Simulated scan of single mutants.
Amino acid sequence: MGTFYHQHEAYEFYLFLRGNVNFYIENSCFRLEPGDLLVIHPDEMHRSFSLDDSEYERITINLQKSYLNSLSTSSTNLSDCFDNRPKGKGNIVHLDESRRKQFLQIANHLEDVIASDAYGSDVLANSYIAQLLVLTNAVFKNADFTLRDIMPELVRKTMDYIESNLSQNISLEHLSAAFYLNSTYISRQFKKHTGLTLRSYILERRISLAKSYLREGFSITEACFQSGFSDYANFIRSFTKIAGISPGKFAKKKEQTFRS
């Protein structure tokens, strides 16, 4: 079992419990161990890939930025572990047995109150989520854990090349010339380790970049051409298909969220 690279319009934290899984974040890949805790920013592309049929168990929670802000205080920024690190770096810590039990206990309480309509269940849910976020941030602030990156060098270099040239024309010929390798070989290796064709990956990255420009207040036309699209109509179609919303509606939605 595997999933394609994807992004969420939310912050995600993910506790790995069991299985035989590789987890890909941006241009890195990690073999997960039970107790590994991951934090993923909305801008970070990621995927999980099960290497066999063994049982795959994890806990995932997705939270909107505005919700994190509502739980934070002037002295406790609960989005710290998501925001204050380089993109695609420092996403993983390992929970020892004590921390893991603590996390699971809170998560079980959260699951119970979410399923309940008893008086105060919404308040309790907020408190349990806040506890999980405090625990997660505390672990990340004190982490000295570094997991070995097992992404093949060719795939990482291909991703880096694409990232550096998103606003330019990128073709298989360009990649072949850059790495002195057969373009078919590059394509096959890339698909094997990312679950995406090069074309699909480039398109996903360009849409992600366009979203960033729109969040920053660029016009739709500016976002289109700055993110590497040469055809405006194709940009509108591609953005709407991948994001599930038109660029215009995305820009307005972000503007409303920012104002609120």
Rank of each mutant, 00 (worst) to 15 (best):
M1W: 04
Y11W: 12
L71T: 09
V93H: 00
K65W: 08
K87E: 07
S50R: 14
L17Y: 02
L95E: 01
D96A: 06
H8L: 12
H94C: 03
L63K: 03
V93P: 01
N22D: 11
H8P: 00
T60M: 11
K101C: 07
F103K: 05
L38D: 01
E44G: 04
R18Q: 14
K65S: 13
P34E: 06
L32I: 05
L32D: 02
Q102W: 03
I92G: 01
F4D: 10
S54R: 13
N69C: 10
L51F: 09
G2Y: 14
H94F: 02
V93I: 14
L68R: 06
E26T: 05
Y14T: 01
Q64S: 14
S98K: 14
L63H: 03
G90A: 02
L51G: 05
E33Q: 08
R47I: 00
N69T: 13
N62R: 13
N20V: 01
R31V: 14
D53V: 06
E97G: 02
F23H: 14
R18N: 13
Y14N: 10
R31W: 09
Y11V: 06
S66V: 08
V39P: 00
D83F: 00
F103N: 04
P34M: 05
M1H: 09
K65Y: 12
F82I: 03
R85T: 02
N20M: 02
V21Y: 00
Q102T: 12
E12S: 15
Y67N: 03
D53A: 11
N77S: 09
L63T: 06
T73L: 08
K87R: 14
M45D: 10
Y14F: 15
F49P: 00
R100A: 01
F82Q: 03
T60I: 15
E97K: 12
E9I: 12
H6N: 09
N84Y: 13
P86S: 14
L71Q: 08
N84G: 00
I61V: 15
S48V: 11
R31Y: 15
D43A: 11
L78Q: 07
P34H: 07
N69D: 15
K65I: 06
T76V: 15
Q64D: 12
A10H: 09
T60S: 14
H41R: 07
R85Q: 05
N77L: 10
K87F: 07
M1L: 09
L15I: 00
